[in-house]
Design a protein around this nucleic acid. Structure first.
Lengths: 147, 147
DNA sequence: AAATTATTTGCAAATAATTTGCATTTAGTT
DNA sequence: AACTAAATGCAAATTATTTGCAAATAATTT
């Protein structure tokens, strides 16, 4: 039973998604896989220590987003954060509780939005399908509250 | 029973929130009040026909956001959209169904997130309060699907 | 395994989105 | 009417993202 994060498997997946398995893409996915919380484009760039050009990171973020491989999370800063959408070990589709001060985040995995989703689409007059949804909660974390 | 959108009342409210009732603020709130859907900063600026400087609009968006008068909605474009948070006639707290192609949006008012919110805060280890939340659904509207 | 080709990358420059400094103006006092 | 703190306009700075193009590279074909 191989690790989900195994390089060969990621390469295969990239090809399945219709992309070449370049080192830039492996890096980006690797960085996101390692991170416990969603990262900004800048944070991804920083973690690659100058090995990948920012433009390349942005282009790939867009490409991976289009394929639904990664999804944006709004941290209420003025840029998006991203996380892997695909299920990994012990990590399924989930939502977040986000500190608007420091950007810390906690995962929330017990909100069943899919049920709501069905109702929403049934009631809509001008939409016939929903591709994605966001559900995030915002507050000030205890650490920031103390300050 | 005066209209909610009445100028004098808005001025009073601005003062209550700790702000001077300037024409820039009245304009911004007026524009948002008239709009059936959340507007980007640029859209707000455009609707004021050069009468208010962009910097002033941005400064006020921030100020009104801080007071919870307006709230940001993520349209998955790369800038925020805003709408009035305060209840108006026939307009209570709600969520959205958003077309990621053209930006059209439909209001959704029957999702009771407040219940979820209680559970989230009860289960959290590092947060003690939630100030805001977002719940949006994304798809391609029927108009865009046809093209 | 070298040649081929369509993708992808890096770099530099462009564009978009937002913020800031500072002199001037204005709303709400006194 | 004079005063004062807050707010504004304007220009410049910063931050975030996108684009054009020549060079590099992954996957394919020979």
């Amino acid at each position: 039973m191989g690790k989900v994060g195994n390089k060969g498997q990621i390469k295969e997946r990239l090809r399945t998604w219709g992309y070449k398995a370049t080192s830039a893409r492996l890096s980006i996915l690797g960085v996101l896989e390692k991170s416990p919380s969603p990262l900004s484009a800048q944070a991804i760039i920083d973690r690659m220590k100058g090995e990948v050009d920012p433009a390349t990171v942005y282009r790939n973020i867009k490409a991976l987003r289009d394929k639904g491989v990664i999804r944006p999370i709004d941290f209420r800063h003025n840029h998006a954060h991203y996380e892997l959408e695909t299920d990994r070990e012990k990590k399924r589709h989930h939502h977040h509780l986000i500190c608007t001060k420091c950007g810390a985040s906690e995962d929330i995995s017990y909100c069943d939005v899919e049920l709501l989703e069905e109702m929403v689409i049934r009631k809509s007059k001008s939409f016939s399908a929903i591709n994605q949804h966001s559900l995030e909660f915002y507050g000030i974390c205890d650490k920031c509250s103390k300050k």
